[in-house]
Design a protein around this nucleic acid. Structure first.
Lengths: 330, 330
DNA sequence: TTGTATGCGTTATCAC
DNA sequence: GTGATAACGCATACAA
């Protein structure tokens, strides 16, 4: 920067002003300085800036698993809000490993990021808000944390939405596919399903735990259901995840004696690609991934701007129902 | 850090040594200092370190599109190599936008990253190696760049692999699904297919350009093929991408007069989830995503360690064939 | 509006 | 092995 100043024939502080507060500098000087910057191929040093200013203007996002497009959506939503304030966003992938999650948090704190967004691994707690370094931090997709803002989705309501849809199209013998003991969100979804069933006279619910929520588990369950006598089959299935639903649809849809959705209607969860790329597109519950990121970034920016007056908020967003051919003939 | 020094009753420089070169400090002092660090909850300031040392020890990865798991694989491979040298990795998503790609590159250069890995948008050229700031940069998944290391995959060979496999199982009337004019990698794959066909007596090749390479395009083409008289159908199809193959399999597999793979064998490309979650799992060409990232990171580290002696390398990796039910009955 | 001086937290180079 | 001290490149008063 000193070279630029010399080259432009101005003082060092003036160059700094041209970059950060152009309105306080005359047109002519701005031009001179910018020409010098271009000629010298000058690249400002953010490390120095962060040091001098005490804080950087970039925000770090730590993601539990980048292979999961749900998290990528959150990152995108966060970026779009940050961009409005011309704040930069960098990502770090914990890759489902607790140690990497901790390392990435450390890294961002050491870099003196303006703030951190964390989509944590399952089982996160307040201990992640550790140490004397109080970099503002907002949790994504996790509700049970005190001492920080959180943004999450209402899984109970999602389950309720799915079941209500099936009930609304006349289904009464529902089946929930997925193991509530496997993950908290699945248990929440089941609770929502149960609530919807309770509210409807004559409706029943069967629980079919599956080892995982992959397509293979869906296929296995699909075969089991197809082999039942027709009278004992459910007429509506809420799958805890889209892949599970995909497996079910693949098997049940291929069975000559079963029509989807007339005989069995099926809903998934997550609005994965798998849901709409299926031969029979699958009705699903869409999680507002981008919205989570956007809301979280908004909260974070608020906290950054007013660290004292800031009050921690626990924001819970609602998922939405996306109706497709697996429940409704178009 | 000054506080830590005072608290531990040592000089500031000693604290720095404890952190960076423990071997130059006595056991007793190390213990004292580390206790002070813990008690004060001290978090080192990387901005200051980068400023003083002139370079950071983190590497930035700019990714064209994080929604594409291929790129995520590259990032994972890069991280695994970097971790061996305890070098940090942060990501930035260009989200398919040229402006964001440029902004992210700027950001990393301004942060004085030790190096940059770039998985560029289509149409990248040497202009991305701009300016006076020579942060080492390696291109991922792009071969046609001078003045930097590149790591890419041999798409021609991938096409050759796919077609050779079909020819090896006795297919002679091949069809290539995908538009070579849409993207360079697709054109490369087609070239490989053509080469394999040329090498085999009695083999013919038909080209069916599709608007995109999505599942929908595959379904459309699938219907068209199903409607042909049986004698005019291909007996082997090389799809330019897995989703395209998925759509083809969905339609052709559902046609009562067509058996997969007996009548028509189908290969995809990329080894997407879609390929193995299909009802009929799809034979595909797997791109070595993690390997690309790993090789690129290794090249980058080499360039960082010896900027002078470094010679730019253009590394071309080979994809592999993954045989599944869409070409071979198990 | 422009120029000058000080400090940000570390590293690195010296003496001790 | 340890302790002072000068950069590092920039922001930010403050003075001109």
């Amino acid at each position: 920067m000193e070279d630029v100043a010399k080259r432009a024939g101005v003082a060092l502080g003036t160059v700094s002003n041209v970059i950060n507060q152009p309105q306080k500098v005359s047109r002519a000087t701005i031009d001179k300085v910018q020409r010098a910057i271009a000629e010298l191929g000058f690249v400002p040093n953010r490390a120095a800036r962060a040091l001098a200013a005490g804080t950087s203007n970039t925000i770090g996002v730590v993601i539990a698993d980048l292979s999961n497009s749900f998290f990528v959506d959150m990152a995108r939503g966060a970026e779009s809000i940050a961009a409005e304030s011309s704040i930069n966003v960098v990502l770090a992938n914990a890759d489902m490993r607790r140690s990497k999650q901790a390392a990435n948090l450390d890294l961002f704190r050491q870099e003196r990021m303006a703030g951190i967004l964390l989509a944590p691994l399952p089982g996160a707690d307040g201990s992640l808000l550790t140490g004397r370094n109080r970099t503002p931090l907002v949790f994504l997709n996790d509700a049970a944390i005190e001492g920080a803002c959180t943004v999450s989705v209402d899984n109970e309501y999602g389950g309720y939405l799915a079941a209500s849809h099936l009930l609304a199209i006349g289904r009464r013998r529902l089946l929930f596919a997925g193991d509530p003991a496997q993950a908290v969100p699945i248990a929440d979804r089941l609770r929502g399903v149960e609530r919807a069933v309770r509210e409807t006279a004559g409706a029943s619910l069967e629980l079919s735990p599956t080892p995982e929520v992959q397509a293979d588990d869906g296929r296995t369950l699909g075969f089991a259901i197809a082999h039942r006598p027709e009278s004992e089959r459910p007429d509506g299935i809420v799958a805890a995840a889209d892949l599970l639903a995909l497996g079910l649809v693949q098997i049940l849809g291929a069975d000559a004696s079963i029509r989807i959705p007339e005989d069995i209607a099926i809903t998934g969860y997550d609005n994965n690609r798998a849901a709409w790329e299926s031969l029979i597109p699958i009705t699903t519950i869409a999680q507002p991934g981008e919205q989570i990121g956007a809301v979280a970034m908004a909260l974070l920016l608020e906290e950054i701007r007013d660290p004292e007056g800031h009050e921690h908020t626990h924001s819970v967003l609602e998922p939405t129902l996306v109706v497709r051919a697996s429940t409704q003939r178009t």
